[in-house]
């Protein structure tokens, strides 16, 4: 494919860039939606969940996706993580003082 006199490369390279961008966009949506599911699940249990519990509950997702989703939920102040004496990461929802 011929290279054009432009900053963005060949036509095919542009299509490749856009396909990649589309994938990233879908990944962002997947992580955000998974994060919402995990928060919902954590709110439904009284004592929080360990990372292993969460992995087990969302077995259809990869470990990387779950880690990303947990990190996102912590950043959004929906959940918090506690490192127990055993070294196990334990996740709890952050409850609001406000009437929701």
């Amino acid at each position: 494919m011929k290279r054009n006199n432009k900053s963005d490369g060949t036509e095919e390279e542009i299509h490749q860039m856009d396909r990649r961008k589309e994938r990233i966009h879908q990944h962002v949506i997947l992580i955000a939606d998974l994060s919402a599911l995990i928060v919902k699940e954590l709110k439904a249990v009284s004592d929080g969940m360990s990372i292993a519990d969460i992995m087990g509950r969302f077995a259809q997702y990869s470990a990387g996706q779950i880690e990303d989703a947990l990190e996102s939920a912590i950043e959004d102040e929906y959940i918090e993580v506690e490192i127990r004496e055993s070294g196990v990461r334990w996740y709890h929802p952050v409850w609001s003082d406000e009437p929701e």
Binding site: N4, N5, K6, S7, D8, G9, E11, I14, H15, M17, D18, E22
Partner: peptide
């Protein structure tokens, strides 16, 4: 957007 071949172009799905 992409600036290419004397054109401005963009894609949407």
């Amino acid at each position: 957007g992409h600036i290419a071949e004397g054109k401005i172009r963009w894609e949407r799905s």
